[in-house]
Nucleic acid binder design. Structure first.
Lengths: 202, 202
DNA sequence: CGTCGCATTGATATCGCTCAAATCCGGTGG
DNA sequence: CCACCGGATTTGAGCGATATCAATGCGACG
């Protein structure tokens, strides 16, 4: 883990947080924090990915959450004294760290920030629930269509993928092979149009 | 929809909300609100269940969230002017309604409430993500074990079910038949102990 | 040029879904 | 008290969708 520098301005970041973040870089398998450690900060992923996992003593590891670019994680840590799980960088990753004490203080002293923080949590909750309902769908085609409906914009529900199709496959809970086949089938039926990483309904 | 009376005191409800909630009763298929209506309130389910769904013009209905007893819903509506989906009671249901304007005002004026609201959202986010990771697991047994790990308490991760096993099946994204078989198999392997609606690991 | 990862397609296996039927259990009404 | 009913629970059989394993092409990158 390496401290780098003050970050550039981040879009959609509450104003009060703009200047108090510290940038850190991690390489694959670095630990951001471990279960049981005292909570020091909440984090925003600038680049890369962090896995939050809970490792049972029986050897089984359970991934609780994967935070990708633009995601906050450990927000709930604000209300706890110790982290409840492990956070591990799954590739080269850059994070913004916001000291928990500072954020807690801001919540109590800066009403505008408190509103923004609540709004941020509400957005994440909304997104999380949309993904939840998506994974509750049984058929691969339904999941892809639901993804376009919820994540796409405009009447055609257009989406331009940030990452690879493999990433999308994980997002919708399919193997990448199934996703390829499902996309091909939907395109053949004329339900979906695909041009490179641009997807839309028809 | 019927207005009933002032509610009793609710556990775990932020103090500032204790006295501003209105109790309403709905019967099956009553609409709490529709997509496009002006946001008037956020809600807490006292009893019953409410389905939040988005109905596409193509006839397909997508359930975005089911809020059961103790769940808030439409929290994200605080940051919007209109509801983004329909809310329908799926059975006889009692709700507490908190006027959005009051809650927004409290967020700005009552730092203690803002912290509690943020904590409430963070808890819901945490729970939602746990369910997300659960549904991302492929095998039925893994989902059941994950459920016990995340929802259970104590070293044995004990859970006493509030509802039926059919309800649990929906929660973990399985048919009830699959759940029965999976539980039976886990019990035979000695991984899970089951006594009525009480489940625990071994 | 070799390697690596993504994309794509094929063949096969498997797990969970669907349909079906029997039992159990609590509640309800006679 | 008993008959009845509806819903939950449980088990069985078979199918189908998706995972898995495998092979190939392709582009990026050193």
């Amino acid at each position: 883990m390496t401290h780098i520098a003050s970050p550039d301005r981040i879009a959609n970041l509450p104003a009060a947080l703009q200047d108090i973040g510290w940038t850190f870089a991690y390489t694959k398998d670095d630990r951001v924090f471990r279960k049981g450690e005292t909570v020091r900060a909440v984090f925003l992923v600038l680049d890369g990915e962090v896995c939050l996992s809970r490792s049972g003593k029986d050897g089984g590891e359970i991934v609780l959450h994967r935070a990708g670019r633009g995601d906050f994680f450990a927000e709930a840590a604000l209300n706890a004294t110790r982290y409840q799980c492990d956070a591990i960088a799954s590739c080269s990753t850059t994070l913004l760290a916001f000291p928990a004490t500072t954020v807690r203080a801001l919540l109590g002293s800066d009403p505008a920030f408190a509103r923004e923080w609540a709004a941020l949590l509400a957005r994440q909750l909304h997104a999380s629930r949309a993904r939840l309902e998506r994974l509750a769908l049984r058929s691969a085609a339904d999941r892809v269509l639901h993804y376009l409906h919820t994540e796409g914009s405009g009447p055609r529900r257009e989406v331009t993928l940030a990452g690879s199709l493999k990433d999308l496959a994980r997002e919708v809970g399919l193997t990448h092979e199934s996703l390829y086949r499902t996309l091909a089938a939907l395109e053949k039926k004329g339900l979906v149009r695909r041009e490179g990483r641009h997807l839309s309904l028809r």
